[in-house]
């Protein structure tokens, strides 16, 4: 299912790069939070956060930025991404489906009748999650130490706030 490049555009691309350490590694002058090891780690966490926070966002075109996660990297994460896709399909209530229908679209994957729409839905949660994470990390933080403290704060308070 996930065997091709994943392209992120607009501000979500900028946010993703802000959160990824790869950006810093590619250009040390970039002042970024760099709280995730790779772009794909941001993408995976963002999907979940989008679902948890119920935030979906459409493709942004406010700037021309973009970032691409290449197929090679994507294929390596295919198992996790499929797991997260199924999670997304099971959780999302936006189309008022029954549990069985949710299960159908989750586990039929590409064979599902509305697979393309399902994938868009999946990516809209990812974009929502990226936006949420970005805002969370830049909120009151501007230095490396502050970004790292944000990690601690988010993780420490997460259960209390979300479970």
């Amino acid at each position: 299912m996930f065997r091709d490049d994943i392209l992120i555009k607009g501000k979500h691309a900028s946010y993703l790069k802000f959160l990824s350490k790869k950006t810093e590694q590619n250009d040390s002058k970039q002042n970024v939070a760099a709280v995730f090891e790779n772009n794909i780690d941001v993408y995976k966490a963002a999907i979940v956060m989008g679902l948890v926070k119920g935030v979906k966002k459409g493709v942004d075109s406010t700037n021309d930025d973009s970032t691409r996660m290449f197929a090679g990297k994507v294929i390596k994460e295919e198992f996790d991404l499929e797991y997260l896709f199924q999670m997304c399909m099971l959780i999302d209530n936006s189309t008022d489906l029954s549990n069985d229908e949710k299960i159908e679209r989750a586990f039929k994957g590409k064979d599902a009748v509305d697979f393309k729409e399902n994938l868009n839905l999946f990516n809209s949660y990812a974009r929502g999650g990226i936006e949420w994470l970005y805002e969370e990390f830049i909120d009151g933080a501007d230095t490396k130490a502050e970004y790292l403290t944000k990690i601690y704060d988010i993780v420490s308070n997460y259960r209390d706030e979300n479970c």
Partner: peptide, 17 residues
């Protein structure tokens, strides 16, 4: 810290789901 946070963050964040 970044490695520890990054590695299984999606699974941790999924706990409420």
């Amino acid at each position: 810290l970044v490695k520890a946070f990054s590695k299984d963050s999606c699974k941790f964040f999924a706990l409420p789901l």
